[in-house]
Design a protein around this nucleic acid. Sequence first.
DNA 1: ACATATTATATCGCGTGCGATATAGTATTA
DNA 2: TAATACTATATCGCACGCGATATAATATGT
Lengths: 149, 149
Amino acid sequence: MSNKYESIQLKNQICFPLYAASNMITRKYKPFLDELDLTYTQYIAMMVLWEKVQANEKLLCEALCLKSNTVTPLLKKLQDKGYIEKKKDKGDERNLVITLTKAGKELRDKALRVPECMAKEVHITAEEAEVLYRILYKIIDDERMIPYD
Amino acid sequence: MSNKYESIQLKNQICFPLYAASNMITRKYKPFLDELDLTYTQYIAMMVLWEKVQANEKLLCEALCLKSNTVTPLLKKLQDKGYIEKKKDKGDERNLVITLTKAGKELRDKALRVPECMAKEVHITAEEAEVLYRILYKIIDDERMIPYD
DNA sequence: ACATATTATATCGCGTGCGATATAGTATTA
DNA sequence: TAATACTATATCGCACGCGATATAATATGT
């Protein structure tokens, strides 16, 4: 049974279920997020903005573990939808001060529905969710604060 | 401390670490997969083909939890790179029989290096990997064999 | 047999995600 | 203060990943 190629069998990868589950969850969000006129990535960006009230692009990149080449067009779309505004920081003109519009702030209450709906879609126990959460953050945090390079 | 909006704080989502960790892992694979001239998605597709030897597009879609609109162009790229060949099935002309070329078969041995390199990149214990694996597959399998609709 | 349904694959348009690179503004340092 | 380094944001091109839809081949039902 044991063979040379076991290590590159799909069923022996940890990366694949991570990838597949992530795709699946994003797909499940879609119908609920459609009602807010948000994509999944736009939704998690709005989460950060709802909490911070004011932010810049760098903060968003770090919070979402994304690069500027993903976040720049994302912010453009949120602006086009009328949820955010971008201004240059008076103190440091490189900085992009991002603020929520009235519509952007109002969206927060509508969004409260989303986690309720999603809870019914993903069938894992509270304990499993906690364990999952802890291990995933171990992977993320390990990478986030890379000291070398 | 407890507020109305806790449920839509980024730190309280299970979807986000899943999404971020998946992105990160894919990013970590890149330098190793570059040596095989494969992207991450092409890599997991090749894993299936190395095992099955012969397959069709539908089988790949199911194995990778992807839709034909992702897999069709993927296969075109693998064909352009000379790793696979596509022919119509004589018995059922709708079927696309996918076979590995010589180069595609040879790539398998080069790929053995990849999991070794990746093991050094992701710092979780064997137990954590096992738990993660089990929970993620619970999410995936729950979705895969959806009976209604 | 023939209209209808089903199946496998393909196409279209959009929004990511990324590495690489460019640009503009600020800080540093000689 | 003038060259240099650094920082925040933006641009480019490529490869997904998706819902919606199209097309061609096979299966089904009357």
